[in-house]
């Protein structure tokens, strides 16, 4: 399965819904989406990963790149993920302490620092 991407606005947050596999082949699409959002002034992002079936370190690298971009504008990048097989790679890399990870989009949208 390829990567699917869609975005919607909820208040001052932009929700990016990601589905499918994020790997070295598909990661550039996600990277481009995140760059486009930041370029158009959307600095508070929620990435909904509940539909993601596979994520490797190249996908993580793209999320980290997105985080650095929004941080440069005092923004935020929150993740929505409850899948154990996806959370595992965040734990292995220690990125659980870098990304706020939420159980639902509602929780992520309502969250403040």
């Amino acid at each position: 399965m390829d990567l699917s991407l869609s975005t919607r606005t909820e208040g001052d947050r932009t929700v990016v819904v990601v589905g499918g596999e994020i790997d070295v082949y598909t990661a550039p699409k996600l990277r481009e989406q995140l760059i486009d959002l930041v370029s158009s002034g959307q600095y508070h992002l929620v990435v909904d990963m509940e539909g993601v079936e596979f994520l490797d370190s190249t996908g993580l690298g793209v999320l980290v790149g997105g985080l650095k971009r929004v941080r440069a504008h005092e923004g935020s990048l929150r993740l929505v993920c409850t899948q154990e097989r996806i959370l595992k790679i965040f734990r292995i890399t220690g990125l659980t302490k870098v990304f706020p990870i939420h159980a639902t989009v509602e929780e992520a949208v309502a969250a403040t620092d």
Binding site: P28, S57, G61, L67, G94, V98
Partner: peptide
């Protein structure tokens, strides 16, 4: 620290190639 390594790595933002995506040591 692996997370620090990933945060500090600085691939060329205009480089869309595989090299900018894959960090062999992180993998």
């Amino acid at each position: 620290d692996l997370a620090d390594e990933m945060l500090e790595s600085d691939p060329d933002p205009d480089d869309d190639g595989v090299e900018a995506l894959v960090d062999p040591d992180v993998a």
